[in-house]
Design a protein around this nucleic acid. Sequence first.
DNA 1: CAAGTTATGAATAACGTAAATCGTAACCTT
DNA 2: AAGGTTACGATTTACGTTATTCATAACTTG
Lengths: 209, 209
Amino acid sequence: MEQETIIEAGGAPGQRGPIDHKRRQQILQAADEHFRLYGYRKTTLADIAKAINLSTPYLYKFFDSKQALGEAICSQCLNRALAEVEELVAAVKSPVDKLRRVFTGLESKGWGFLNDERKIHDMVLVSFEERWGSLARFKDARFQLIRRIIVQGRESGDFERKTPLEETCGAISNMTDLFFHPMLLEQAGKSLEDEALAVANVAIRSLTA
Amino acid sequence: MEQETIIEAGGAPGQRGPIDHKRRQQILQAADEHFRLYGYRKTTLADIAKAINLSTPYLYKFFDSKQALGEAICSQCLNRALAEVEELVAAVKSPVDKLRRVFTGLESKGWGFLNDERKIHDMVLVSFEERWGSLARFKDARFQLIRRIIVQGRESGDFERKTPLEETCGAISNMTDLFFHPMLLEQAGKSLEDEALAVANVAIRSLTA
DNA sequence: CAAGTTATGAATAACGTAAATCGTAACCTT
DNA sequence: AAGGTTACGATTTACGTTATTCATAACTTG
């Protein structure tokens, strides 16, 4: 009958308790630092709690589980990466250039995770393996970014208007996985800049038919 | 100075000794059966040797290592899968249909491995993780298949002729990874038939510009 | 010399146990 | 009640040891 925990609109799932609490921010910051330095699997909740002088169980006032905390940080990282790609996209005018930058930008960010923020890369990998919600939200945001570009291109007349919009956007969104998916990047073991460009060109030509 | 082992032309690497030896065939068959039933990691060389009444070290007369044996079987499986896709491709005339069948066919075979031949799927997964040569050879064969179709399409006038051939073929070949790569399939956890079709259509439209 | 085997060392994997870790409940304190 | 802690059970993880397994070398036999 009564609702015990406040469900914050638009907030990530797995969270509980007061949304705008000083402690929540502290926890998130400590978690970010530890995950970044020691990795998700190697940092314990006790580590995080100790860093801000709290007992471990108290973390559960704000997060359902360790995974929920991981998802929150993971979402931050993925969102930031996508935001940076959006900046790159915003810096050019034509839908063609924008779309190309989605591919090259994502490739560059993915490769950057792998090389410059190895622990974050590992956490993203875990999030992929365990199908965390952060991943679905990222894919959705990526889809929306691509969809906006394609809609704009259709309106401006740069892109064709006949093929089904959602299907096409979904396919092109999936294609970017080739260069951002942490498993594939790790396996490739090298920058996939050229490949990303080539695939981007395929996508672009399919739209400028 | 002298060449101790015969290097067979076109043969898989990691093999030694007489090429056309009765024992080699027996070993390969026993290996195939065991890998298929118990998986690559769980079967020991002793298992294989025992199955055909040989001592373990004698296997080394024909193969450099367990991995070499694994690569041989893995190549067989991948080649067979690709051959079946080639059959599907051969059954239609137009380059457009052919290309579409490369995508849907690979998706179907990949999904088939995962569901009907789980141990083989696992072995292919190992071959991907450990970057076996069988994988590179498969990718090359896949590239060649796609290249033949696109060249044919260019000659028949179905496909455009302006974009760089090798780059385009490489990109489209990479795109098929989305539906055949064992890691991605496993993670998706469902058939990617629709997605494969959608991406195939993107590739096709890029060529019929 | 072709077709094998036995002996053996180094690297890996399997296993059982001890220790940490996650997560809950019940309890304190202002 | 908000803001915490201590106590504690059930899973996981880490670890050290034993047992396998891979791979080579040297040996045997027809």
